[in-house]
């Protein structure tokens, strides 16, 4: 090459990094043919980049550690956070007062809560296992019918939304309305390219306190569930706990972001 050695080395890096114009690329390609040393450098740099991506690829798909859940949630919830916090304190205070008044009655209250949460996730997982194997009628209303979400939101009586999981490879198939102890519940079903199915089950919940993610597993099916009043959610599938957790994180972040957008008069659809 005509250029002095120093700039030529930088040029080789720029070649690998896609920083050159078409003309410059052609020049470098021609130079590579006659310089084994230059070719070696280009190969090595590519190999280093491949090795880096391979080494740290896990970070892109693994679930977020618990320490990051808080900022992630605030990322969606910020405009309403002070009120939510206040409400939570009030609820906590009410529990403490009730516990103080009723003595060890608090233990009963807690057990009651656990039972209700268990009932919720059991129903959600049950609905999952019933409808997921359906070949011809997996959903009641297909995703391409615009009124799916509007209809379910109206029937459930709350702002129910179907998160977009397309970027993770999950296509929304549609949804259905279900009875849950006499209350209407919504189920959204997703499918990935390999035919695996995932459901998000949503029901109104005003009796129980908000919870963080909880995991429930039965017969190879797993479900992450959480309560974010006025709604309770369960994300179910025959997936590894990690994969399900990752999806739950994304669903949660999206719902929170939409909620916050709505609260601040944003443009959530």
């Amino acid at each position: 090459m005509m250029a002095p050695r120093r700039s030529s080395e930088s040029e080789l890096h720029a070649f690998v990094d896609g920083e050159l114009t078409a003309d410059e690329r052609a020049e470098v390609e021609a130079a590579l043919a006659s310089s084994p040393q230059a070719l070696e450098l280009v190969r090595d740099v590519r190999e280093i980049n491949d090795a880096l991506r391979q080494r740290y690829a896990g970070r892109l798909s693994e679930p977020l550690p618990p320490a990051l859940h808080k900022p992630l949630a605030r990322l969606g919830r910020r405009p309403v956070a002070p009120f939510a916090t206040l409400a939570r304190w009030a609820a906590a205070a009410a529990v403490v007062m009730a516990a103080g008044a009723a003595g060890y009655g608090a233990r009963g209250l807690l057990a009651e809560t656990r039972r209700s949460e268990a009932a919720f996730v059991t129903t959600a997982l049950g609905a999952h296992t019933v409808y997921v194997p359906e070949v011809r009628h997996p959903v009641e209303v297909k995703a391409d019918e615009a009124h799916l979400v509007r209809w379910l939101a109206k029937r459930v009586g709350a702002d129910v939304r179907a998160p977009a999981l397309g970027s993770l490879g999950w296509r929304l198939m549609g949804g259905r309305l279900l009875p849950d102890q006499g209350l209407p519940a919504a189920q959204f079903m997703y499918e990935d390219a390999s035919g695996r199915r995932l459901t998000l089950y949503v029901r109104k919940e005003t009796g129980l306190n908000n919870t963080s993610f909880r995991f429930h597993e039965k017969d190879g099916f797993g479900a992450f569930y959480w309560i974010d009043r006025p709604l309770a959610y369960a994300l179910s599938g025959r997936l590894s706990r990690d994969e399900l957790m990752n999806l739950a994180n994304v669903v949660y972040a999206q719902l929170e972001a939409q909620e916050a957008g709505k609260a601040s008069g944003g443009q959530a659809q």
Partner: peptide
């Protein structure tokens, strides 16, 4: 604001990947 928050959330895995490689330690990275 909604779209901004979503954009930030979407970058978290890449930020974690970079921080882990940069610092060589999981705890420090997070």
């Amino acid at each position: 604001m909604t779209t901004r928050r979503e954009a930030v959330a979407a970058e978290i895995p890449r930020l974690r990947r970079y921080a882990r490689a940069l610092l060589g330690d999981d705890g420090e990275a997070d």
